[in-house]
């Protein structure tokens, strides 16, 4: 890889820069200093959402880097699309940064089918970013299927958290 990987913190630095009206990019030092930012709040009902509205940007939350899906579906919800548009702008402004899109599924259904489903979800995110003008070459898609759950329980709340794509 000729370029560095985009880190969680880099995005957060970007948002901080955006909010302060500053046009500089986040350095690695900024990134490491920013990793203690609070994580996204997620509702645990049947449909998950992220706080990505404009007002959120005025708080100390960052733009969502985890995008949630319904069972056996790979359709991006409105919140995810809004967050991804912000990511797309930043990525276009920083074409040297590579990202990794990790697709996941909940534990229901078969493991290899869920590998394919996780990839389909990550491809949805990738394709949306391409539509928004991001260079396909900076994105790598990896599916973990149901093998790397974010929440361990066998219940709807955990499943909702596990049907996701993580941007790294």
């Amino acid at each position: 890889m000729k370029t560095q990987l985009l880190k969680y913190g880099a995005i957060i630095s970007f948002m901080a820069a955006l909010l302060s009206g500053c046009s500089t990019t986040g350095s690695d030092e900024d990134a490491s200093a920013s990793t203690t930012m609070p994580s996204q709040s997620v509702t645990t009902g049947t449909v998950s959402t992220q706080d990505v509205s404009g007002t959120t940007l005025g708080t100390d939350s960052a733009v969502a880097r985890v995008f949630y899906f319904e069972f056996d579906k790979a359709v991006l919800n409105a919140e995810s699309r809004a967050a991804l548009r912000l990511h797309a702008e930043w990525l276009k402004a920083h074409p040297a940064v590579n990202i990794r899109l990790e697709g996941h599924a909940d534990e229901r259904g078969t493991r290899e089918y869920n590998m394919a489903l996780g990839e389909r979800r990550a491809n949805s995110v990738r394709d949306f970013l391409i539509q928004e003008g991001v260079n396909a070459a900076v994105m790598e898609v990896i599916s973990y299927g149901e093998e790397s759950p974010a929440a361990m329980g066998s219940n709807e709340a955990s499943w909702a958290l596990n049907r996701r794509v993580e941007m790294k």
């Binding site: 290899e112 590998m115 394919a116 990839e119 790598e140 898609v141 599916s143």
Partner: peptide, 14 residues
């Protein structure tokens, strides 16, 4: 003894 058989981009499975 082990041998890696595939190393493609994307899924390598089942």
């Amino acid at each position: 003894a082990r041998e890696q058989l595939t190393n493609f981009k994307g899924l390598n499975g089942a």
